[in-house]
Design a binder for these strands. Structure first.
Lengths: 183, 183
DNA sequence: CAAATTGTTCAATTTTTGTTGAACAGAATC
DNA sequence: GATTCTGTTCAACAAAAATTGAACAATTTG
């Protein structure tokens, strides 16, 4: 009984409580986040919440994914800013709990609002700057070339500005799947 | 004439030959590349070629941007794979010269083909894997939850597959700017 | 107001990613 | 076939980005 008295010291800390399919889904989102230019931890967090019916507290997210407090806090905040996660409060409980937004349209719109729209705005300013630099060119031929490039960039900018609203519109026109009339 | 006999040793290497507006355009593309998840050197290279009427040799790209052989070689190859750069050969010259593709539609289509399409394919495989994991769940309630998530993911996948062709279609419908009837 | 709970911030660290340049391969020229 | 020219590859290195966790609010509870 000497070697086995350590039994009690085994902490019930290992809440390695993820189903295989959940691990696979979390990994899917990890990779997706990566290719969208987001930190992988954001993908993991979203993936976990996506799998669950019940809202999870930050505490649980940390333990289930084995990530640090800082990552969980920052990740949840970023995901809320993207509109990919929303928070709820259980009555008589101090802590916030988080739940995944699963409507694709909302996800796409939020992502574009956070990532694409700011770039378009910056683009406007940059184009003006380039235009003024081009106008300062002495040599006529060189100035003409610069002006041509500025026109092209302006055209691109205009086209992207047109495209984005379209994308926001046509994604998610049939969010609720027509197959299976449950729900 | 002792201290000044080095005159000949001054190499005409400092072809720091970029106009201010070119620097600004290159920086624009550097930032753009960054937000598309591409290395900044790719953006610089594309930006430089975008500015120029004449095709440039790798050698010139290296010197003008002050980047290494490796970066130039890898960058140019990646840009060619994206369809953002094409190469031409001047008659009686051994070296390849590079020129930027400036039609927005081509750029978008190439980017989506290289970045998005592969993800959709992988997605199909992953969805199958998740489906089979879900089917192995013992508990009925848990299996139902897993099945529900699998359906949602399949729906997203289908919608993204529909969206991409649309984007490829509607971008660049008016590449040649209607203003200025030259060309 | 001390202690406990929940969450944020940010400097230090780890991990990931991009860049460099020397060695190499192929092709043309002498 | 030796030399020059052009471009590729990849291991070592540098730079950038994500992650960690300890210190720090802000609340709530006893």
């Amino acid at each position: 009984m000497n070697a086995f008295t350590v039994t009690k010291s085994i902490q019930p800390n290992d809440i390695i409580d993820l189903d295989d399919w959940e691990v696979a889904v979390i990994d899917l989102f990890l990779n997706a986040a990566n290719s969208f230019g987001l930190p992988k931890s954001y993908g993991q967090i979203y993936g976990l919440l996506f799998c669950r019916d019940q809202a999870l507290a930050m505490h649980e997210v940390m333990e289930l994914l084995q990530i640090s407090k800082g990552s969980a806090s920052q990740g949840l905040r970023a995901l809320r800013n993207l509109g990919a996660v929303s928070s709820v409060f259980a009555a008589g409980d101090r802590k916030e709990r988080y739940i995944a937004e699963i409507r694709l349209r909302k996800l796409v719109v939020g992502f574009l609002r956070e990532q694409a729209d700011p770039h378009l705005e910056k683009g406007t300013a940059r184009l003006k700057q380039i235009e003024s630099l081009v106008n300062n060119i002495e040599d006529v031929g060189a100035r003409k070339r610069g002006a041509r490039r500025h026109e092209i960039l302006s055209g691109w900018h205009r086209q992207m500005s047109r495209l984005l609203p379209w994308v926001k519109m046509i994604v998610g026109k049939s969010d609720r799947l027509p197959q299976k009339s449950s729900d």
